[in-house]
Nucleic acid binder design. Structure first.
Lengths: 236, 236
DNA sequence: GGTCACACGTGATAC
DNA sequence: TGTATCACGTGTGAC
C-alpha cells in the first residue's frame, strides 16, 4: 500500500484544495480527486458556489485548519517535553513508554509524599543540633497550601509569641502548633496554611524568617540546661 | 457541516467496506462512495480482485484495523488514568490540562527530591530519640538504585560490624558510611547501592532489618552515657 | 467567532 | 507474523 507523505485527508481540506483558491499548495491525494463531485452530506456545504476573490472563505477555513494543525503540534510537543523531563528525573532509562513512565511517576510521588510526612512527624523530640525545616505539604481540601515548619533550638519561653507574630506578618494561619521541650532544648512544629496570595516560593520566606528568629534566640545565650523539666504542649 | 458519528474515514477501511465481505457493518461516509473507482495510488492494492470466501483477506485486514483501533483506545485510557491519579495526588483542581499538570509534576518531583536530600544530610548529629529512616535516592549514573539509611540509637561499638553483615545479607553494597557518636548516643548514616535484583520495595526489607538490629541493640541495655567521648568517624 | 484542549482513528514503526 | 507504541491531522465541545 502506497502511503501518502502528508495525510491531508480531511474532507474539508480535500474540498477546499480543489474548489477554492489554493495558496498553500499541499499534497493532494490522487485517489481523492473525485471526492467532491459525488453526492453526499457535503452537498449543502456552506462554501458551495462561493465567489473566488482575494481572500475567500476557503482561504480562511484553510488557514484555520492549518493553525489548528500547528497548535495541536505545539500542544503535543509541550506535553512530550514534560514527559522527557520526567524521564530524566526518574530512575528509568529514556526509552520507557509513556504509560509506564506515568505509572512510575505516580508511585514516586506517593513515596516521596509519605517520606516527607514521616520524616517530620508532629511528635518528634528536640535534637541536639539547631534545625530548621519547612516542607510544603499537600493542599488542603479547600485548596489551601499547607506548610509544615519545624524549628529546633535552645529552650526559650518567649519564642512562641515571637513565632506567632512572625507567622502573622507573613499572612500565614497557624492550624496546629506543637512544642516539645526536653533537656533544655525545644522543638516547635507548626502546621500553617497559606493565604490565596501565597505560592510555593513562600517556603523560602518562612525559612528565612525562622532562621533570623532562631539567630536572635541564640544571641541571648543561656547555656544552662534544665534536664529536669520535660514537657509537651499541644495547641490545637 | 454534517459531522460523521464515527469517523471511519480510512482509505483502507473505505475500500474494504465496499468491496469485501463486510461483517462488522460500520458507518459508511456517503461522500466517499466513489472513492475506489477513481484511478490513483490504490490501483495496485494487494486485495484488488481477490476472491470472496469465508474469511477473506479483507475481513482479516478489517479485523486488524478494528483491533488496532481498540488497542489504541486502551492505551489512551491507560495513560489518562495515570494522569487522573496524578491530579488527585497533586495540589491542583481536577480540571487542569495535561501539559500544566505535567509541569506541576516535574516541579513537585524536583521539590520533593531536594527536600528528602536536605532532610537526611550525611552529617547530622545523633538525636535523643531512637530513629530509623530509609530513603530511596535517585539512581546513580549507571542505573543503580541508591538508598540512604539513617539509624540513631544508644552508642554500641559492636553495631557497625552487625550493620555491615546485615547489608551484605541483603545484597546491598555500602558506598559510604558515617558514624557520629555524641553523649552516649550514635547516628549511623549509610549510603548503599542495590544490586540489579532489587526493586523500590527493598526499602522495607532494609527498614525491618535495621529495626530488628536496633531492638537487639536496646535489649543489651547499657544506660551509662559517656558524655565525654564525642567522636566522628567517616568511612569512605 | 476564535482559541484551547481533548479524544479519536490512522499510518508508521519496532520487535 | 501479530502486537506493542508513537506522532499526526482532524472533529468537536467548552469558554
Amino acid at each position: 500500500m502506497q502511503p501518502h507523505p502528508s495525510p491531508e485527508n480531511s474532507y474539508l481540506y480535500q474540498y477546499l484544495s480543489e474548489n477554492g483558491t489554493f495558496n498553500i499548495a499541499p499534497y493532494t491525494f490522487p485517489a481523492m480527486q473525485s471526492f467532491c463531485s459525488s453526492s453526499g452530506s457535503y452537498q449543502n456545504y456552506p462554501f458551495e458556489g462561493s465567489v473566488v476573490t482575494d481572500i475567500t472563505p476557503q482561504d480562511r477555513a484553510l488557514a484555520a485548519l492549518r493553525n489548528h494543525k500547528e497548535a495541536e503540534k505545539r500542544r503535543r510537543e509541550r506535553i512530550n517535553s514534560h514527559l522527557d523531563k520526567l524521564r530524566t528525573l526518574l530512575p528509568c532509562n529514556s526509552k520507557i513508554d509513556k504509560a509506564s513512565l506515568l505509572a512510575k511517576v505516580v508511585q514516586r510521588v506517593k513515596e516521596l509524599k509519605q517520606q516527607t510526612s514521616q520524616i517530620s512527624g508532629l511528635d518528634s523530640f528536640p535534637s541536639e543540633t539547631d534545625e530548621i525545616s519547612v516542607l510544603s505539604e499537600e493542599y488542603s481540601s479547600d485548596g489551601q497550601l499547607i506548610f509544615k515548619a519545624s524549628l529546633c533550638c535552645e529552650d526559650r519561653s518567649d519564642l512562641l509569641p515571637e513565632l506567632i507574630q512572625t507567622l502573622k506578618s507573613l499572612h500565614l494561619k497557624t492550624l496546629r502548633a506543637e512544642m516539645v521541650t526536653l533537656g533544655g532544648r525545644m522543638r516547635n512544629v507548626l502546621l500553617v496554611s497559606a493565604e490565596k496570595d501565597h505560592s510555593i516560593e513562600s517556603v523560602h520566606f518562612l525559612q528565612n524568617a525562622l532562621k533570623s528568629l532562631m539567630e536572635r534566640s541564640n544571641s541571648t545565650d543561656r547555656s544552662k540546661r534544665r534536664r529536669v523539666l520535660d514537657r509537651k504542649l499541644i495547641i490545637q
